[in-house]
Computed example of a mutant assay.
Amino acid sequence: MAMRGKFDYDLKTLRQKLVEIGDLTKTALRQSIEAFQTKSIDQALEIIERDNKIDVLEEEINDFAILLIAKQQPVAIDLRRIIVAIKIATDIERIADFAVNIAKATIRMGDQPFVMETEKIVRMHHIALEMVSLGLKAYYDEDVELARKTSDMDDEVDELYGQIMKDLLQLTKNNQDSFAQANQLSLVARYIERTADHATNLAEHVIYLVKGRHYDLNG
């Protein structure tokens, strides 16, 4: 196989690893909100146990990418593709960690009834999950417009997060017994908000890949 052909094959392999880690992470995110809503300890534990595969994949992606840089000494967009792959893998692994954190909070809350309505938390999570899906598709397609659409959705997540925190603050003022669970709910909301921030990072990486310039979309 000619050198360029081998390099293109290696880039395709790197991309496939990112597809795999992305799919695993999206599944973990979907299941984390399901476990939260149904108070399923078993499902929460499964999310935690499967996280190791995502961690291993991130290491594989980083090692493979660094090896490609060392062997091929790529330039211009080829170098950006490899650098962005490393950045994407890092953000995706962090998003998977947030799914694990939601699962752990679910376990800590146990089977006690929710002390407040959770519709805003669920809505917030659905938007964040869609952002992750769109951000990854933008990366796979190298689609700048889709990347911008992804980042634009972050405003609604931030708005919901602010509302949830106000609701929780008011709740604990009026009901001291709700404090323990309210603290866990605030953590869940924070993990979702951070998930959306990392999805916005995915969008930034796509724009850098295509345009060769860094843009801060989290501002």
Rank of each mutant, 00 (worst) to 15 (best):
V115W: 04
L79I: 06
M124W: 10
K166G: 07
A103K: 01
A203P: 07
T90Y: 01
F7M: 11
E119C: 00
D158H: 06
I88L: 10
I164Q: 13
D154R: 04
E117P: 14
V157N: 06
R80Q: 07
I33D: 01
L171A: 05
V56W: 12
E59A: 08
R194Q: 09
G22M: 09
T150H: 13
D111M: 10
D197L: 06
L129V: 09
E46R: 13
G219R: 12
M124T: 09
K39W: 07
K17C: 05
L209Q: 07
K137I: 12
I107K: 14
I61K: 06
L160G: 03
A105V: 07
A105M: 05
V122F: 05
G22D: 02
A70I: 09
Y208H: 08
I54H: 03
N218C: 00
V19H: 09
E204Y: 11
D216T: 05
I48Q: 14
D167N: 12
V19F: 09
H126G: 03
M109D: 06
E34F: 04
T118A: 04
I83C: 01
L18F: 12
S178E: 01
I95P: 00
H126T: 07
S186A: 15
T13E: 15
V210W: 02
D10W: 11
V75C: 05
L45F: 01
N174I: 00
I88H: 04
S133R: 14
E130G: 07
L146T: 12
A99G: 02
S151H: 11
I192C: 00
L11T: 10
L129Q: 08
V206P: 04
A199L: 06
N175E: 08
K173R: 15
D216H: 03
E142Y: 09
S32P: 06
G5C: 10
Q184V: 05
Q163F: 12
M165L: 12
Q184P: 03
V122T: 09
T106F: 03
L14I: 14
R81T: 10
D141R: 13
D141V: 08
L29C: 10
I121V: 11
Y161F: 14
L24S: 14
F64T: 14
A28E: 01
I121T: 03
I88E: 05
R108T: 13
K6T: 02
H214N: 13
I83A: 06
Y215C: 08
G5E: 15
K87P: 04
Q73T: 13
E193R: 03
Y9T: 13
R213L: 12
V144Q: 00
D78M: 08
T106E: 08
I69C: 11
Q43W: 07
A2H: 14
L202D: 01
M131V: 00
A99K: 06
L134W: 12
D152H: 13
I41S: 08
Q170P: 01
M109L: 05
Q184M: 07
I69S: 07
I92N: 04
M1C: 01
I92W: 00
T25D: 02
I127S: 09
L18Y: 09
T195Y: 10
N52E: 12
D154P: 06
I41D: 09
D78E: 13
A65K: 07
R15I: 04
F64N: 08
N201P: 03
A99L: 07
Q163P: 02
N101I: 01
I33Y: 04
N62W: 05
D91S: 12
L169D: 10
D111H: 14
F36A: 03
A85S: 15
